[in-house]
Design a protein around this nucleic acid. Structure first.
Lengths: 201, 201
DNA sequence: TCCCTAGGTTGACACTGTCTACCTGAGCCG
DNA sequence: CGGCTCAGGTAGACAGTGTCAACCTAGGGA
């Protein structure tokens, strides 16, 4: 008995969607394949026909988050000015994290399924860093590759750090005003530019 | 029957230590109070005499990580020069994350026990940010408090982002050389200084 | 038409967190 | 001194989970 209204591919897809819904509502810890099955009206073992283990379905969910993130970054605005281009990338990165907190958290949260056992999960995982690298390589004075890597690491640290921090309750608990939070993205991106030698107007 | 060789406080302490050992070895997901009890040679219910739930023992472990982190930062070297002072703080922060990856991950990993239900877990959670704030407030030209908060958020984003990234396998997968990683801390701290207007020698 | 396989169902098992009842020893009070 | 209370344990039960194993059915291909 296939899931309501379709072929087996539909059950697989329905499992992924349901897993995401459960995680969205109650967190990764609450993900239970039996719950998934129950919600889809199939036997508790049916999801295992498509995913050998709980980790596999989680890896699928995470892998899709990476892919969605990569696609989002690809669609960003661009500029011929390298500093502005970098700013637009940073902006896009943080926008994604803000608009899709769950997906962002899925990508960088712990514990994830072991990448060695789920290589396809990582297909698009490197995209953000690679994009940062390329964008930074275009900045003036970036000759050695190691220097590009160092600044790409720096930039990634900043945006990843801010994205992560903004997703926690920490900012509320630290007594940081909402107006300050609202300015944080622009301010932080400005600081990246300053750090990387953007000319002052 | 108290745990091997002592009063009940000893079982409580032993539970915390064992929980940390289990987490260190197999990750937070592997933490099981029955496993803790088994390893300590007590009945499976005994840990519940000291911790009402699994979340409570986890909150204790995390709270101790925060306290240890705060103590570590308090012991850092300091300087009269505000930029150098900031650099020393950043250095200390990243050193801690490097020397105590498990503890760092415990503090910032998801999902944590609900802070609202475990307020004592957060006793020292704000320390790092508060310290960053104070240190940045000493930099020249930091009059408005909101400006201090913005730059403290920026600096925190950088160090937290880098600490997090360096703890994942991501850097290996991204083809970043070890030599580059080794330089990342110094380079990133230098970039923070540049971003925050450190005079050039 | 027959066989194989994909994709389901069902039941079992071991493990977990938590609830409940019970026990013992120590300390305190009358 | 004896009785009571409580802290801190033991043991058993229950519900839920992930996973293993056996079985079934329908569709497709030879």
């Amino acid at each position: 008995m296939a899931a309501k209204g379709g072929k087996s591919g539909d059950l697989r897809e329905a499992c992924v969607k349901q897993a995401l819904a459960i995680i969205a509502k109650d967190g990764i810890d609450a993900l239970s394949l039996r719950d998934v099955a129950r919600r889809l009206g199939v036997s508790h073992q049916a999801p295992y026909k498509h995913f050998p283990s709980r980790d596999h379905i989680l890896a699928e969910v995470v892998g899709r988050a990476y892919a969605g993130f990569a696609a989002y970054l690809e669609k960003r605005s661009r500029s011929d000015d390298p500093y502005e281009d970098l700013g637009l990338l940073g902006r896009c990165y943080l926008d994604y994290a803000q608009k899709h907190p769950l997906h962002y958290q899925l990508m960088f949260g712990t514990p994830l399924p072991d990448p060695a056992e789920h290589p396809e999960m990582m297909d698009k995982a490197e995209h953000a860093f690679a994009t940062l690298r390329e964008t930074i390589a275009k900045l003036p004075g970036r000759a050695p590759a190691a220097s590009v890597d160092l600044d790409a690491l720096y930039a990634w640290s900043v945006v990843h750090g801010l994205a992560s921090i903004l997703q926690t309750r920490a900012t509320q608990q630290l007594g940081i005003r909402k107006a300050t939070i609202a300015e944080a993205t622009a301010h932080t991106l400005s600081r990246i530019g300053a750090a990387l030698g953007r000319p002052r107007n």
